[in-house]
Design a protein around this nucleic acid. Structure first.
Lengths: 242, 242
DNA sequence: CGAGCCGTATGACAGGCATCATAGATGCTG
DNA sequence: CAGCATCTATGATGCCTGTCATACGGCTCG
């Protein structure tokens, strides 16, 4: 339970129920009613405020988490020390599942990008179900495909091209996953700092600021309270080709 | 069957038997004897010479392939047109499995890096077994974990750091997967051009040549007939940190 | 309210690397 | 054997971008 509810911080969003989060998790769709119930009894909600670490890369994977509300980024630090954001996860998405099945340490750190509620499922509880439910396995295989593909996609984009193109790519991908259609554009419904953006594009804060300033001056995007809105998707897509 | 056996090309290596390739494929380990047999009857060996395309990204995934001998690279072209090598696969490894299960088009092109024999398994034949064999699913999930992790690893390395570090990283990863221990170093048992290296490190041929020349001058690596040998692993690892 | 922190913004500067150009070396081909 | 393709190699040049430095607004806290 979050103890410090002080006036200064934005109000803590309502705590979702265990059942509702389990039900909203696409990965756990194929579970039977009783399996859901069993899992729910052993799991519990947790809260992380903005910037808080949920787990650190290298620690043992005792927990599988499901995002209830808010957004979580998975990061990895390079040998040189800088952080690279690998994935951004929203409500209903699952963290640390594959690695828990393999029984090894978390390869990525999980950090809350916004104030977030998430469900902590003991890895052992999930493994019991995994071992007896072939449908769950099929589901996992199928959900891993897109993830792998997205990773390859990012690899291709990151390892080549100029920073402006990489940032444009990141914005478009984010819009694809978390965008809300507006009359005059697409709003990426996650508050992201320039730093977050830089980590995702594999660059520095300064450069991401510069590029975003340029985009804003050109009317391609706009930012309001760290929420980015794409005003001209076509122009942004074109800047990929430059 | 390869028809042109001319004197000039290096002799075509012996064709492995269908059974031997199936047996050597770690991914298909959990198959029963009869399942293996069934699969073998519907599959057939194919040959690709160096540089030959096995399949093109975007085509329908009717075939799952298993490398019998030789090496195959999986590549993706960026919006700007350059090719990026995502994975390098050797004997016993499996191409296009996940995407075939999902029934979508190949996301990556497969190109033979050396003269290669590979087994072509009709996707439908494999799917029948996948649908009825939970052990296979478990196996796939567990094998996807490391792959995903490797992809994340590469993402982190590629999206930051200098080219010299990326090439060093590529060499070390290759040595890890395909290295043969020698008395005076580790030989990467795949003939790779500077172009191949450049694609894996996400840079240009010229730069990869320059970096490799530097490494050779420093006695860190040596090349003989496109086969790279790491002479000083410690020095190479150190250059990651710079 | 002043101090401090965080996020955004902008400038100066140097160095890395992509690009273009050229050339030698090797091996296959007609 | 001359011709051609492929791979390796090296130089010149200019832009991109990482680094360092400074500044400003908003927010929280004492």
């Amino acid at each position: 339970m979050p103890s410090k509810i002080t006036s200064h911080m934005s109000a803590i969003p309502d705590q979702p129920s265990v059942i509702s989060v389990l039900g909203a998790c696409s990965m756990l769709n194929p579970l039977t009613e009783t399996e859901m119930q069993l899992l729910g009894e052993q799991s519990f909600m947790a809260y992380a405020e903005r910037g808080e670490m949920i787990w650190l890369a290298g620690s043992p994977s005792h927990i599988v988490a499901v995002v209830g509300s808010g957004f979580v980024k998975m990061t990895r630090s390079t040998p040189q020390g800088s952080e690279v954001a690998i994935e951004l996860l929203g409500p209903g998405q699952c963290l640390g599942l594959v690695v828990a099945i393999e029984g090894r340490e978390y390869p990525l750190s999980a950090i809350a990008v916004t104030h977030s509620w998430y469900l902590k499922i003991p890895a052992r509880a999930l493994m019991e179900i995994y071992n007896s439910n072939p449908n769950l396995r099929d589901h996992i295989v199928r959900s891993l495909g897109p993830r792998l593909r997205k990773a390859h996609d990012m690899m291709a984009r990151m390892s080549t091209g100029k920073v402006e193109q990489r940032i444009a790519a990141v914005l478009l991908i984010l819009a694809d996953s978390y965008g809300e259609a507006l009359t005059d554009g697409t709003r990426i419904a996650v508050p992201l700092t320039r730093q977050d953006l830089a980590e995702m594009a594999g660059t520095t804060v300064e450069t991401s600021i510069r590029v975003m300033s340029r985009f804003q001056k050109d009317g391609v995007v706009s930012t309001d309270k760290q929420v980015i809105t794409i005003r001209d998707t076509a122009a942004l897509s074109e800047s990929l080709l430059a």
